[in-house]
Computed example of a mutant assay.
Amino acid sequence: MSDTPEAPKIEFPCENYPIKVVGHNEDDFRGFVIETVQIHAPDLDITTVTVNESRTGKYLSVRLQITATGEDQLIRLHEDLKASGRVQTVL
């Protein structure tokens, strides 16, 4: 037996699942993130999406919340965002 506690399991569906996407500060980055997320979470409420610029202005972080329906959905979403070459980090 291990003394390391297990990470908590997410129960699906999980409403208000937070996602933060970081990429280069480009005019259409917010729109790109929203379009990509809506493929996997069509019920995304875009009025809750927030965008913050990094201190140096080089990066943007787009924060949003989705209803996560399962691990497969989250994996595919992460893969699609990263495959674009425009995304530095997905949290």
Rank of each mutant, 00 (worst) to 15 (best):
T36Q: 14
D80R: 13
H78L: 12
G31N: 14
A68M: 05
F32L: 03
G70S: 10
L77M: 15
T50S: 14
Q65F: 10
I39S: 14
I75T: 15
T69C: 11
V49A: 02
V62D: 07
Q65Y: 08
H40M: 04
L44T: 05
G57R: 12
V49T: 02
D27R: 09
S54T: 06
I34H: 00
E35T: 08
G23Y: 08
D45F: 00
G31S: 12
T67C: 15
D80G: 13
E26W: 03
H24V: 10
H40K: 06
V62W: 15
S61P: 07
I46C: 02
D80H: 11
L64F: 10
L60P: 01
L64C: 03
V37A: 07
D27S: 10
T50E: 14
R63L: 09
S54Q: 08
H24F: 12
D43V: 02
T69H: 13
A41M: 03
K58L: 12
I39N: 13
S61I: 12
D80C: 10
D45I: 01
D28S: 11
N52K: 14
F32C: 02
E53Y: 12
P42L: 00
N25Y: 11
R63F: 13
T56E: 11
L44V: 06
I46G: 00
Y59A: 02
Q38F: 01
G57H: 13
K58A: 07
R30E: 14
D27C: 01
Q65W: 03
S54A: 04
H40N: 11
L60Q: 13
